[in-house]
Write a protein that binds this DNA or RNA. Structure first.
Lengths: 199, 199, 199, 199
DNA sequence: TATTAAACGAGACGGTACGTCCTGTCTTGGT
DNA sequence: ACCAAGACAGGACGTACCGTCTCGTTTAATA
């Protein structure tokens, strides 16, 4: 056994209340955006008491992040890889599709405006923003092992160059975040990886 | 004459008030962060009346952006170019240096949380976030004209791959935003540009 | 010099807001009682903002006292006195009539539960509770001057014996507070005043 | 017989819990006053659970009254009576001494702010406030039987005139509640009783 | 001696109200 | 006409208690 019960006493926290609050928060996020979320509004819409919300989340920002994490699709590396380009293409298209929505926009805003040092923010960042990047790292490793590419120098920077543009377009909004962009991004990424220390 | 008066009656708007408000807003941004800025606080600190502030800016977010734009160094392409790599290196290092500060952090936050459709937000975005990217486009054009590189396909995506990682590290914070990063980024960018349409 | 204006600037406090808040507070007092008054409820019913209420009164208790003082009938000694007994009778009956109502009950409760050291409480006490007692002192003085009675020793205690029973019945509620009581009280009071230092 | 033990199974109510709650409530009353008492605070200070407190008392006000009644000295008529004046003096001084304390103040407040129709309030009123008055009635009866005074008309009003001033000074606070007051009050009371339908 | 059921402490629940802060508007008197 | 000052209605903040409700844990009469 791993984790002996720390003397569980008193009424246990209600999972229903948690669920209802998260659902209400999510609805508000989708309808009105991150800026309009408030503990007050979530309490009113969900029928959950304010103190209960504060017992579960430290502030509106954490609640928003929790709501956005709930049921967020896992961005993972494809298992069967027919080649680096294809695998990357499938993954990047997935990510772009997920983020080119209201939810994606709210995710970016939530991360940007959250307290960068909070535990919750770290979890959110790792789970939502960086998980795709980590999956990308696995794709690269696999390609190296298959001999498809050489081990890239400065892999962290390479990963940033591949995954940052998605987040960038999402937040800055100077150019559309669409399939065409995803395809061009993957093409350039593959170029970069294949031409390493080129001729 | 300077200011063609459409009627010129009554007391003219005070530039001093504007300046004082911007200065106070900037101080609050640097000391307490974007989340703590408020018209109330700026009015109190600057001695400027609230209605005067509302006359100049629509809300706290716009005031913050205005304060951050005031006196922001112009990121421009170096005039004398000894080569694409050197020029890019100089510029990227400048940008990283500017953004790896409290001010840079506040700029990113302000952009992320601003109304994306407002006039002010667009101006802020073009002036602060995208000006480096546009200067980069000029550097690339010049290098093409010098014959140093071929015309890159998908130039918008290439520019994103070069400039997005800076903003990405600033906001996501998973890796440091420092000189080492700037050097690696430029190295990779040059690789990408030179190896276009591979070996 | 007395009290020159302390540089009156800014928007002056709204007397309308004050009035509306007092009226709403009074309604709640009459309908639901002192225990149900709350700044929240007064703000909601009156349409006056909570901060405005707090600007005018320190807490719900003071607001309640202010509402009860507003328009409270002045209990004064009758001008034309046909004799101590008659004058006293008229006044005591007036007081009993005023206090044998919901308003009277709320007044007693408000005084009992208010911070005894606050400025407002003192004013309330003097204006509402003790004003009748002071008027009674004047009646006694006049009767002395007319030679109707001798100067009573321990006038403070005598006044308490006359006026305390009203308040006592109101709060303790062991016996009714009605006209019969008023008549008996005055009769006894006159006996006490006339029989001073016995037969 | 009416209602013998209806089954009496399971753990019996703990007298210790009752005692601890009353003690904690009393401490809070003495230290912070009636306004600061709360079930929450009593539970925290006593280590007794909130439901246990609610099982014993209906609300904070009743708990406060119970705590104030616990161990309250019985105000009774002295057995050996050397005369009406002496007996009254001894009793009134006792009462004044008991009420001229923090406890006395809290008692008055508790009574004033309690629900006047509750069972507990009635018990509290009879036991604490009116017991002195009833003892006074016995003193008067005894004096009548001894032939010391005539049977007073309107005995209820006379009793109010003697006992109300104590409560009045306690709550209104316009004059001190001290020995001098007690002496003057008794003197006036005796005057009133002896001069009945005077010369 | 074992069973069993009520009362226990702990503590989360949905609520209400608190008193503070800030919003954006409006209304003064002063420059 | 514009300023500063500052009051206004509105509304969210985060906290304190309310009185109720599960929990798992005593505890003592009963079987």
């Amino acid at each position: 056994m791993s984790q002996d019960s720390p003397k569980l006493r008193g009424r246990p926290p209600s999972k229903t209340a948690r669920r209802k609050a998260l659902a209400a928060a999510y609805e508000i996020l989708m309808q009105d955006g991150l800026g309009r979320i408030s503990i007050e509004a979530v309490a009113a819409r969900s029928g959950v008491g304010k103190p209960t919300i504060y017992r579960n989340w430290a502030n509106a920002s954490e609640l928003a992040m929790a709501a956005l994490m709930e049921g967020h699709p896992e961005i993972a590396a494809a298992k069967k890889q027919s080649g680096l380009g294809d695998a990357l293409m499938r993954q990047i298209k997935d990510i772009v599709q997920v983020f080119a929505t209201t939810r994606g926009r709210q995710i970016a805003l939530a991360l940007a405006s959250a307290d960068p040092d909070s535990e919750m923010t770290r979890a959110f960042r790792n789970r939502i923003i960086l998980s795709g990047r980590e999956a990308g790292r696995q794709l690269l490793d696999a390609a190296v092992q298959r001999g498809e590419i050489q081990t890239p120098s400065d892999i962290e920077v390479v990963l940033d160059m591949i995954y940052a543009p998605i987040f960038y377009r999402l937040l800055v909004g100077h150019r559309p975040l669409d399939v065409g962009f995803a395809e061009a991004l993957v093409e350039k990424a593959v170029e970069l990886l294949k031409c390493q220390s080129g001729p």
